Simulated assay, not measured.
Amino acid sequence: MTTPISENPAVTNPMKALTAQQRKALSAVGFYRNQRDYGATWMLGSTRFPASTIEALRRLELVKATSGGGLDLTIAGTIARDKLKGTGNGNG
């Protein structure tokens, strides 16, 4: 079941809905193309993230697996990342 983007709290208010580790991982998925799944951890750029953090982002429909074995942001993930960066917040 898919949650509409306008009703997904991770998109509407990512600072409140995501943990600090999830916010950092979301930014890393959007920034780094060098991504590797090591089973219990994911290497995004030069930073390791627990697989549970990535799985939480998948459940929130912010990231998806790519055919090459990496990760990519969904549309919802891109909106959440932009809000975290301070762009796309609707304030001008």
Rank of each mutant, 00 (worst) to 15 (best):
A56W: 00
M43H: 02
L84C: 05
A65P: 11
K16T: 10
I79T: 15
D82K: 14
T74N: 10
A28I: 04
A51S: 11
R23S: 10
T2S: 14
L84G: 12
K24C: 05
G70H: 03
N13M: 08
R36D: 09
R33S: 14
T87W: 09
T87Q: 11
P9E: 12
G39I: 01
P14Q: 07
L73W: 04
R23V: 04
F49C: 04
N13K: 13
G86E: 04
A80M: 01
G77T: 09
A40Y: 07
T2V: 13
W42Y: 13
R36T: 09
R81S: 15
P4N: 15
T53E: 06
T87N: 11
P9K: 14
A40M: 03
Q21C: 05
S6Q: 14
I54G: 01
A17K: 05
N13W: 08
T53M: 04
Q21N: 13
R48T: 15
L73E: 06
I54V: 14
N89C: 08
Y32H: 13
R48Q: 15
Q22W: 02
K64T: 10
A65M: 13
R23W: 02
T87V: 15
G70V: 11
T87R: 15
R33C: 03
N34K: 13
R36K: 10
E55T: 13
N13D: 15
Q35N: 12
D37K: 05
G86M: 01
T41W: 08
T19F: 02
K83N: 13
G68Y: 13
L18I: 07
Q22C: 01
L84S: 07
R58L: 09
A17G: 07
I54R: 03
